[in-house]
């Protein structure tokens, strides 16, 4: 498969900070891949997302999006291939109501009004928010606002979606709704998804997990492999998933537990089997 994003020898430093955020950083992301980037606060996850979207400019190195090198001249063209959903549902809602917020990006891209009407409806239906089209943001829940933000992204038909801790302020239900839509987009439309997250459950839905620590890539593997290193996760400031914690506890009680990461469901099945064997 083709590389959708390629980051080569990237270096970056915030002007008001000492020390490099990134130093000679390399990463390739394939087309249609769902990549999760995890790491503690200040590990450089969000900075990386902003660099990919051209919201920040690297001091050295290059970023290729869909084969095009990101430069200050073509940043608006490249950005049109990327849709971003940010953390705070309220602070990215520009329009006075739902449909106008979805239209905001289309207005920026100078899409004709007839097209806009079609695309706004289409994308709101995709996220099951069409019936709320005329609602003001004050009347929506956090999860609904994030779905609207997602509709705004879908309407622009990007190739890449970046979720910058987009589910961290949502309740479990809202989180699930958002992630279900993302999974569908990833499966059906072959959209490349980058989800930056603290939430291990969200990360475990990805096909590949990259662990960042102080701007360094310390692990790049399948989620099962990454999360099976429970104690190492704690070391880099992440809480291991519930099933891993349970596994650790069982191990300390003298049980023999499987090496690989188990999802909660996998854990339940394994426990049942263990139980029925005894």
């Amino acid at each position: 498969m083709v590389d959708m994003i390629e980051i080569k020898n990237l270096s970056f430093k915030y002007s008001q900070q000492d020390g490099q955020t990134f130093n000679d950083f390399n990463l390739k992301i394939k087309q249609g891949e769902w990549l999760a980037i995890i790491g503690h606060n200040g590990s450089g996850k969000s900075t990386l997302a902003r660099l990919i979207d051209g919201l920040l400019a690297p001091s050295e190195g290059a970023i290729f999006i869909d084969g095009i090198k990101l430069t200050p001249e073509n940043v608006w063209d490249v950005r049109s291939k990327i849709g971003m959903v940010f953390q705070n549902p309220d602070n990215q809602f520009v329009g006075a109501n739902v449909e106008e917020d979805v239209a905001f990006g289309l207005e920026n891209a100078a899409v004709s009004r007839e097209q806009m009407l079609v695309r706004v409806k289409e994308s709101l239906q995709r996220v099951n928010m069409w019936e709320f089209a005329s609602h003001e943001p004050a009347r929506l829940s956090g999860g609904q606002k994030q779905r609207v933000a997602l509709a705004g992204v879908i309407a622009l038909r990007p190739k890449i979606i970046i979720l910058d801790e987009a589910t961290s302020m949502l309740d479990p239900e809202g989180r699930k709704a958002v992630l279900d839509i993302i999974r569908e987009l990833n499966h059906k439309e072959k959209l490349t998804v980058i989800s930056i997250t603290h939430d291990i459950d969200e990360a475990s839905k990805a096909q590949r997990v990259v662990v960042l620590d102080d701007g360094k890539l310390i692990q790049d593997d399948k989620p099962e492999k990454v999360f099976s290193r429970g104690s190492d996760l704690v070391k880099i400031g992440l809480e291991p998933p519930f099933s891993e914690k349970l596994k650790g506890e069982l191990e300390s009680l003298g049980l023999v537990v499987p090496e690989d990461y188990l999802t909660e469901e996998g854990m339940i099945n394994w426990l049942w089997e263990l139980f029925s064997r005894q």
């Binding site: 971003m84 520009v94 905001f104 920026n108």
Partner: peptide, 9 residues
């Protein structure tokens, strides 16, 4: 930031 990411220029 969000407006810029959504192409507002």
């Amino acid at each position: 930031t969000a407006m810029e990411a959504r192409g507002y220029h």
